[in-house]
Design a binder for these strands. Structure first.
Lengths: 162, 162
DNA sequence: CTTAATCGGATATTTGATATCCGGATAACT
DNA sequence: AGTTATCCGGATATCAAATATCCGATTAAG
């Protein structure tokens, strides 16, 4: 029951991309350096984000990644689904249709009660994730951070697009 | 982001153990046969349930597993925690302390806002799981099942303790 | 034409989940 | 006392997924 590292990486990265001016991008190498994560692997994660429509990419010299929409319109669920895929955590293998007391397929019109219970809990989890936008997280972070740290990051971002 | 098969197996098994008379147990081999799952591996999962206090075991001939308490006092969270462990799904590696704009340890008294947001969502998930007892699931299952199926299972359980 | 950058496929490495086996302990039954 | 059934724990094997790297193709800027 674990989320991949890509979820942590890309969430933090999105908070950095949010500081970019419109129509500017940052390269994967720069982002990887910013958090000291492996560049080639991060590239894969960013591609997943792109396919999910969370970020956009521009190829060629001067290209890079930027957010596809505003921080108010990007939720943690968007990122988790992009990286981890849409699969539910609980995998129902229909074991009620196995063994000496197995149910017939025809008696399984209703979903397995065990699977349904887990699915409901996961839906609550997803709802909680989709209630947290990038904007809300950045607001919290800005409130907790020192002014020096915020300017450090702003300067770094400016240097990337220079 | 996946739960192990043991979660599905043991949840279903608990609903079977709930049908046992007091002070009677069912062997791992019998339970494995009931759901057509590998006996040796299931044994490991049952040991996890036992260490978590969800079930009790009796060794030796005539021994086996039974629930440690009533179905009202066993939740899905008890089972998931027993099998999957207490670790959170989101793993914070403190990448805010990495790279050219890293934070000093002394500036990290407050938890990382990203990690905190995921932790909150997971808490909501756990709350949902702990709100579902074995009793409630068995009640739903009984309401949906045919009378024949319920008696099939009851007969099988009786045969095990005969 | 060179340089910088993403894209996608192929592949390697590492980790964790899944699964098996066996010797030891324990309890019931004969 | 001995046999059988059963859980317990450690060691180990197998398999799938996460993690990580590399490279050729593509694209765009200078």
């Amino acid at each position: 029951m674990q989320l991949g590292k890509g979820v942590e990486w890309t969430t933090h990265i999105c908070t950095v991309l949010a500081l970019l001016p419109e129509d500017r991008g940052i390269s994967v190498d720069a982002l990887a350096e910013f958090f000291e994560v492996p560049s080639a692997y991060l590239s894969k994660q960013m591609q997943l984000l792109r396919r999910a429509g969370v970020v956009r990419s521009v190829r060629g010299k001067g290209g890079g990644y930027r957010l596809a929409r505003g921080v108010d319109a990007i939720t943690l669920l968007d990122i988790v689904t992009a990286i981890e895929g849409p699969m539910p955590a609980f995998r129902c293998t229909e074991i009620r249709q196995k063994g000496p007391c197995k149910l017939k397929r025809s008696d399984c019109k209703a979903p397995c009660e065990v699977a349904a219970a887990f699915a409901e809990a996961e839906q609550v989890y997803r709802d909680a994730l989709s209630a947290r936008t990038l904007a809300s997280i950045m607001q919290e972070a800005a409130a907790n951070a020192t002014p020096e740290h915020l300017t450090d990051i702003a300067i770094w971002v400016q240097n990337q697009i220079a």
